[in-house]
Nucleic acid binder design. Structure first.
Length: 473
DNA sequence: ATGTCC
């Protein structure tokens, strides 16, 4: 009892605040170094009161430094608004509290103009996944997310859906031959594909971006891990779509979901770190650090983000081109949309920066793709331009279970039965992507009838994903 | 999401 381990509450009782210093103190405490509980607490109290006398101390130096740094920074910390701005939640009943709490913090940022939560929202890092945030002259790297420019691309071929049954073996082979998945994976020098995005002058913007070009080339045309996929399926137009020029019917289609690979992830990491150094926010909002788009750092991120977006698009183009020529098929229509990005848009008569982190652009008449899961339908949609949703919709069904929870509780036999029942061939994927780990896409669509109209329904038939989680070794 | 903390 007497020697019970010191925890955060003990430190708070001494006058510590819930910030970085507490973490440093607890880390020192883990070593103990011959002090008993009482002596350690007394030491922590003295360091807090007189950090300047501990700057040369062998044990407490790191804590003293952090405390002094926090003291001098206190006045630089940007104040949040006292009350969160009001925002609309779509599909309220099926959204976890963690996502709403994160959105509430985002709505208190001094740069926030408006926000909305999509019906597939769940907790993320900084801004929740499924969160839409409009700001004034500020871009939040974690409001875009790690996978900058992550998107959907759909090719509708001039081939009947019956092709899926008649030529299933050929399609399977085409998928295996023309895709490569997983973190760190890409193509060898002699396998690389060229694409005009590699000639973009933005790759010469600065040394940081330049240093990423070779790896970007290596990974061009590859797909990521986790929920990324390349799949063949049937797309059904119950009515003809004049705008797309597709007649009523069932067609063979290719649907892909992937992002900007290691290239975008490195950019996201670099600028999140920079934003946190420049923009000091209170503890609960620190991951929402933002950059001024009218200053050098914000402009550099903006250019890098846009290049990552172009690169992600190029990755999909490479995959679709390879597969289309392997099939020798004609293209009837193509639709593409990104769902992790920031845009300059007009909102309520002013220009704002709209962050969509796992949200599909759904401006009036804007086409988008909302996938379900490997075994459930996805939808080709047309936006209705709903103001309260900041011209957005969900980017999928949304997770019902965390990855760890899914891996722990779901059975492979159940997954196998579902796939068999629906006649779906699955190549790769871990149990964390099983359809049972996702919300019911039909409920999610029902929660956004005011945001999008359904144009066509896509049913996956041959699905390729990264093996076991994000690895493919 | 990414070879996961320079």
């Amino acid at each position: 009892m007497e020697n019970k381990r010191i925890n955060g509450n003990d430190l708070i009782a001494l006058g510590y605040k819930e910030n970085h210093a507490m973490g440093v103190a607890l880390k020192i405490n883990r070593k103990r170094l011959g002090f008993n509980r009482e002596q350690m607490l007394a030491n922590f109290k003295r360091v807090l009161e007189h950090p300047e006398s501990y700057l040369e101390d062998a044990v407490f130096k790191p804590l003293a430094e952090v405390l002094l740094e926090i003291d001098t920074m206190e006045e630089e910390i940007i104040k949040l608004k006292e009350h969160a701005e009001v925002y609309t939640v779509f599909g309220e009943g099926n959204i976890e509290d963690g996502a709403k709490k994160q959105m509430n913090v985002a709505m208190k940022l001094p740069v926030t103009v408006a926000g909305a939560l999509m019906p597939d929202a769940h907790q993320g890092y900084g801004l929740p996944i499924g969160g839409v945030l409009a700001t004034k002259n500020a871009v939040i790297p974690y409001g875009v997310g790690v996978d900058i420019g992550c998107r959907m691309a759909l090719s509708i071929f001039d081939l009947p859906a019956t092709y899926l049954d008649t030529y299933s073996d050929k399609l399977k082979e085409v998928l295996l031959k023309n895709t490569r998945f997983g973190a760190g994976n890409g193509y060898l020098k002699h396998e690389r594909t060229d694409h005009e995005v590699l000639d973009s002058s933005l790759f010469n913007a600065d040394d940081f971006i330049r240093s990423l070009k070779d790896k970007a080339w290596t990974q061009l045309g590859s797909s990521g891990g986790g929920n990324h996929f390349v799949e063949f399926g049937m797309i059904e137009f119950a009515t003809p779509d004049g705008a797309l020029g597709v007649e009523q019917g069932k067609y063979l289609a290719l649907l892909t979901h992937s992002g900007s690979r290691g290239f975008g992830a490195t950019i996201a990491g670099h600028y999140t770190k920079l934003a946190k150094e420049i923009c000091k926010l209170p503890y609960e909002a620190q991951h929402l650090a933002y950059l001024d788009v009218n200053q050098a750092e914000g402009q550099a991120y903006w250019l890098a983000m846009n290049l990552a977006g172009d690169y992600a698009s190029a990755c999909h183009q490479v995959i679709h081109d390879k597969i289309q020529s392997a099939l020798g098929a004609e293209l009837l229509a193509k639709v593409e949309n990104h769902h992790n990005f920031a845009w300059k848009e007009q909102f309520n008569g002013e220009e704002v920066i709209v962050h969509r982190k796992g949200a599909t652009p759904a401006g009036k008449d804007v086409m988008g793709i909302i996938p379900g899961s490997m075994a459930t339908e996805g939808f080709l949609v047309r936006g209705k331009g709903k103001e309260a949703a900041i011209h957005s919709a969900s980017h999928g069904a949304g997770r019902l279970m965390s990855r760890t929870q899914a891996l722990k509780t779901l059975s492979t036999a159940d997954l196998k039965a579902i796939l068999e029942d629906k006649g779906i061939t699955l190549l790769g994927a871990g149990m964390d992507e099983a359809p049972m780990a996702y919300k019911d896409i039909h409920k999610v669509m029902a929660a956004q009838v005011d945001l999008v109209d359904i144009v066509a329904t896509f049913s996956p038939k041959i699905v390729r994903m990264a093996d076991d989680g994000s690895r493919e070794d």
